[in-house]
């Protein structure tokens, strides 16, 4: 068993290493790098005072940002620093990458946690009800609704929600995490203001994720309801309530919990599109901006973070399987 876990972890490390190298290489290929943009800016700013030209600035900045090294040396340097725990300083935000990450990650976490709670609270009852009344009108309604949620493009849903709730009804702001009068509010007011700005993004994310979990719950519940022990329970003369809540639902919980355990790492990964659309300064939006600006250290950090999260969830899944199914361990 331990041998298996060690093998799995070392594999994850190799994948993280290769993945980060690919991202690094591609980032270095970016046609207009951050450094070029900065050099152009500096050259324009100093043009009137007879300062250095674009080429001179570019040379100096390339030196300062270590852009003259080839991809392999650059990656090796980056990796060396990372192993020492130093992810460098973000070029765009002008502060330590980890510090910036610490500032913004909590927005994403709050957003995702609230979404997850809502999702569970909505999907599980819906799934169970749909399974209980299989092939009824209600069941068809739930199925179509779940399918619709799966089929919604994020940006379209977000735009429609904005159109209805922000433009037409005027209940919420279109963008941002804080309102116009944020600074004048007291502590409680500030918290409420932020919460209010989180409503639409949460609604968007919840609607997008509802479909999958509802269908999953329904499928599993159906499977359980067709099991022999449910028939036995009914034959015993137990009330329908007890049959569903005590016997069927508890057995459905096992696949549901394992399904949701895969979701836990993704709580930290942010949601790039939704955050960007609502300009919530969570990790997704900040990383998107950094990426567009060509901010190498931040993009690298974000990508490696994503890689690590994916690998952790895959590893967890594999190890869980290994625990359950001894055959996996042998291979």
């Amino acid at each position: 068993m331990w041998k298996f876990i060690v093998r799995r972890i070392s594999l994850a490390l190799v994948i993280i290493l290769c993945g980060s190298f690919i991202i690094y290489g591609v980032m270095r290929c970016m046609p207009t790098s951050f450094v070029e943009g900065l050099a152009r800016q500096r050259a324009a700013a100093s043009a009137t005072t007879g300062g250095a030209s674009y080429e001179e600035w570019l040379e100096k900045l390339n030196e300062a940002y270590h852009m003259n090294d080839d991809v392999f040396t650059g990656f090796a340097n980056w990796l060396g620093n990372v192993l020492k725990g130093d992810f460098g300083e973000s070029w765009k935000y002008g502060m330590s990458v980890t510090e910036k990450f610490n500032d913004v990650i909590w927005y994403s976490v709050v957003l995702n946690v609230v979404t997850l709670i809502l999702q569970v609270a909505i999907c599980i009852p819906l799934g169970i009800q749909a399974a209980r009344h299989q092939y009824s009108g209600f069941d068809y309604g739930i199925t179509v609704f779940a399918m619709l949620c799966i089929s919604l493009p994020t940006f379209f849903l977000a735009t429609v929600l904005k159109y209805v709730f922000a433009v037409k009804l005027g209940w919420f702001d279109l963008y941002g995490i804080v309102g116009r009068y944020y600074e004048q509010l007291d502590g409680w007011g500030k918290a409420m203001d932020m919460l209010k700005h989180m409503v639409l993004p949460t609604l968007t994310l919840t609607m997008l994720n509802i479909g999958g979990l509802t269908r999953y719950t329904r499928t599993n519940m159906l499977e359980v309801l067709n099991a022999d022990y449910i028939r036995t329970a009914r034959a015993k003369g137990l009330s329908e309530k007890v049959v569903i809540n005590r016997h069927a639902f508890r057995n459905t919980l096992i696949p549901l919990v394992s399904y949701m355990s895969y979701l836990v790492p993704s709580l930290f990964s942010g949601s790039m599109i939704t955050e960007t659309l609502y300009q919530i300064p969570g990790i997704g939006y900040i990383a998107y901006d950094a990426m567009v600006a060509g901010d190498l250290p931040f993009t690298m950090f974000y990508s490696v973070f994503g890689l690590v999260l994916t690998q952790i969830s895959l590893m967890l899944a594999d190890i869980m399987y290994a625990v359950v199914d001894p055959r996996v361990r042998v291979n």
Partner: peptide
């Protein structure tokens, strides 16, 4: 393992970079 590696590459960052490359050329 190759599939795993491919699978773990973050999709949108990759597409953003690819889009920027196509824009540049």
């Amino acid at each position: 393992r190759f599939v795993d590696l491919f699978n773990s590459i973050p999709y949108y960052p990759m597409m953003i970079i690819a889009g920027a490359l196509m824009d540049a050329f």
